[in-house]
Design a protein around this nucleic acid. Sequence first.
DNA 1: GTCTATAGCGGGATAGAC
DNA 2: GTCTATCCCGCTATAGAC
Lengths: 207, 207
Amino acid sequence: MIERSKSTDNQMTTEEKIMNAASLVFMKKGMDGARMQEIADEAGINKALLHYYFRNKEKLFEAVFKRAFDKLMPPLLEVFNSDIPILEKIPRFLNLHVTFLRENPNAPQFILFEIQRNPQMIMEFFAPLIHSGVIDQFKEGVQKSIEKGEIRPIDPIHLLVNIISMSVFPMVARNLIMEFAPFSPTEFDQFMEERKTSVSQFIIKSL
Amino acid sequence: MIERSKSTDNQMTTEEKIMNAASLVFMKKGMDGARMQEIADEAGINKALLHYYFRNKEKLFEAVFKRAFDKLMPPLLEVFNSDIPILEKIPRFLNLHVTFLRENPNAPQFILFEIQRNPQMIMEFFAPLIHSGVIDQFKEGVQKSIEKGEIRPIDPIHLLVNIISMSVFPMVARNLIMEFAPFSPTEFDQFMEERKTSVSQFIIKSL
DNA sequence: GTCTATAGCGGGATAGAC
DNA sequence: GTCTATCCCGCTATAGAC
């Protein structure tokens, strides 16, 4: 007997079923490792229907990537673009991000790998973001805080990379961490919950 | 005219040529995305020879993975297993690690992705490491430092994850960072060089 | 819109000459 | 050991009935 995930059951449209199934499979296996058959099975429909709704594998993949990207970015921008002082941005960012990651555990790994596989996709998706001036705004915010004496002098890019590293990387390496710590899935979840405050403290102490 | 990398030229054995070519291709494309034909071209030999030296793609892949793993781990263990105090371990670790990563830029991404693709491989490679007691030794080292008042109270696992996150993640996300910062390849290299001291300071200040 | 059946080809693997 | 030629399976994609 075959176990189906919820993608099949309720009254979702076929297109939604496909998107959910494709997300699941693509995120786990990547573009190259994913099989259209597996996506169809996961969605509880036939392979040919995938081509009916999305012309081909590439197009389906792009739709999945775009959806993940659009879910991930707005909350991040909201925090970094806001006018609140840097010391408050950090815990807010961590909160949002860790929450998102718990719901989409494979998203970062997936996005990072596909960027390396097909770097030109960076431009398509990230270009508007890059030219929106978020980074410059972050840099200025840090500079001001330094001048006011709120934090010690530090290169804003190194700070930004530190913040993102400590939030994102543990999810990318979660299988490894679970083996080494060792953690059960529940314990790992708790570990990530702890990091919301733990990492905030760690960063603030360092500034 | 086809441009070949150095893999072809000098007096390496055929097996070495294959290993180098396979490393290059597998690290960039992953197991699923890599093509035996591309590896053969990169090595400047015929596809059939790959099967002569390594029975099949899977075996060749495992050889590549093992070599990357064996190059990565010993230096890390050397630092974490040593008896030097935690505050000295950190800059030493960063030095070694950043140096290794500059020579093998795709290794972490590759290892992390393949672990998720085929988790049982974690056990084969990491099991001896996990049972060697490195982690416990690290935990004890941190506890002692806390008791002596050398560092503030902190969960050793969170500390360890922070250290590794800040060293490894920037390399995993380097395409992204290069677009956002923005950095040329040379500037990114310099950025990583800066992190040797920048991250050491960041961590030590926080403790 | 959804299915079954099948075309068409890319790519891993092998046979066999040299 | 190294090559050319070829097999054959798996997978994407399409044709066409309902």
